[in-house]
Design a protein around this nucleic acid. Sequence first.
RNA 1: GACUCGGUAGCUCAGCAGGUAGAGCACAUCCCUUUUAAGGAUGGGGUCCUGAGUUCGAACCUCAGCCGAGUCACCA
Length: 512
Amino acid sequence: MFYLCKNFEFMSHKLSEQEQIRRRALEELIDLNIDPYPPYSYEVNATTEEIHGNFPHDSSLFQDISIAGRLMNKRIMGSASFAELQDSKGRIQLYFNRDEICPGEDKTMYNTVFKRLIDIGDIIGVKGFVFTTRMGETTIHVKEFTILCKSLRPLPIVKEKDGKTYDAFTDPEQRYRQRYVDLIVNPHIRDVFKIRADMINSIRGFLVELGCLEVETPVLQPIYGGAAAKPFKTYHNKLDTTLYLRIANELYLKRLIVGGYDGVFEFGKDFRNEGMSRFHNPEFTQMEMYVAYKDYYWMMDVFEQMIEKAVIELYNNTSVKSGDNTIDFKRPWKRFTMYEVIEHYTGVDISGMGESELSDLAGRLGVATDKYMAKGRIIDEIFGEKCEPHLIQPTIIMDYPLEMSPLAKKHRSKSGLVERFEVICNGKEICNAFTELNDPVDQRKRFEEQIELGKRGDPEAMVIDEDFLRAVELGMPPTTGLGLGIDRLVMILTGSKSIQDVIFFPQMRPEK
RNA sequence: GACUCGGUAGCUCAGCAGGUAGAGCACAUCCCUUUUAAGGAUGGGGUCCUGAGUUCGAACCUCAGCCGAGUCACCA
């Protein structure tokens, strides 16, 4: 015997008419001694996918099936009705016949329960056999059905006819806030998250195969570092101390390299307290990896392999259609130095230029700069403005100005530059990597330069992390490291226009 | 943060020479057939985002605010 509260007076918000009707249906079910939330499991022996994949070819199959899912449509017609059931794999039509559901005199299960008390959105289990209707649709002939969960809110059902879509649930705000509804009524968006998961698994497999250890490092950090960004600040009561949510994994992962690991990687959330846009969510997923005794040339090759492998596993092909562009990840990718690319797109060789010259150039090119921007930042602005958008195919851009890369090692032969590369794809950066700076004297100097930049007004200048310096002073082997923006890559691989489409629950303003 | 557009029934939207609201779907009652965004009949449902102003009168005009979308700027 089940036990259920039938008193809805406590509800804080005023119920809509449809909610009231559903609650009344709930009460009626209880009065009929039907538990709307039965406590037991329901055995399922088929999925919609299996049925659609096999039935027409072999009609001896699926003659005694049990399947469960959400009711998505109901077409009542006297003594014979049709409905649609959606499980995690897809949808299938159900056929209900009054006299088969209710073989005896009592037609309650059909006339009252099925026709009136079951609503779209309810989760039900059905037993029966599969057949093909006169209209040629694979359908389950239902002999018995069970309510597994009564739904108390109406679902915005999407309808289609003749290729036209009606009542689509498309409002982005509603879709992101109520992702559960989005997943129910727009099941195709699951594909994006499947690709996301598969991609992450592919990369993880590749890194494990490479011999790297997957690790976890703190999200709550007393000093944030490893990137140029504004942090989220929080507070630990017992320690009576300010903590920051990490903006990058870098400094902790390098400590592990100091500790003696040859290769480590971490998939993790980073948090940046900055503007939001279709390319930026305050929390985003990054994969960072560090490998000892290797340099950035090695990393370029490895990154190309890793991404090419993932794309092939996902699409059986190296190229992907992303919006209007077709992007081919087939190795090897084009490689240019940053100066080469800037010269290519602006016609200006900036290699000998100083800060004031660069500032003038930026002005001539219509690139906005700020007072606190030193030489490196200005170059980066010009690159970001004039070059990046043109780079659609994956392209390795190498050798960045030293000032904007305080954790990267000086270039072995080019003064003023560091051994750093980024991969630009679809006009956006997808990874950032360098030969890591392991000279502790130089590292301290770089941090001090960051302090100067901070004094000059750069809100994203780094702060000194003495514990990190202590580790580097102990000695870090030559190392290469890389950070990969997972969300951005998923956007490219799925052709998503907004980062919110590749994150289940993107950050939103609190409701109401 | 700047600019543009938008916020009307559960869903998608219409309504604007300013006269306190409509359609389709959904919902309710009824009829009916292996039907297909089912069809037919009847019916219920809305502080027209919020606040102030103009007006005899505002969903519509003005101002302010809230929320969202798009574009641009910055960071992955």
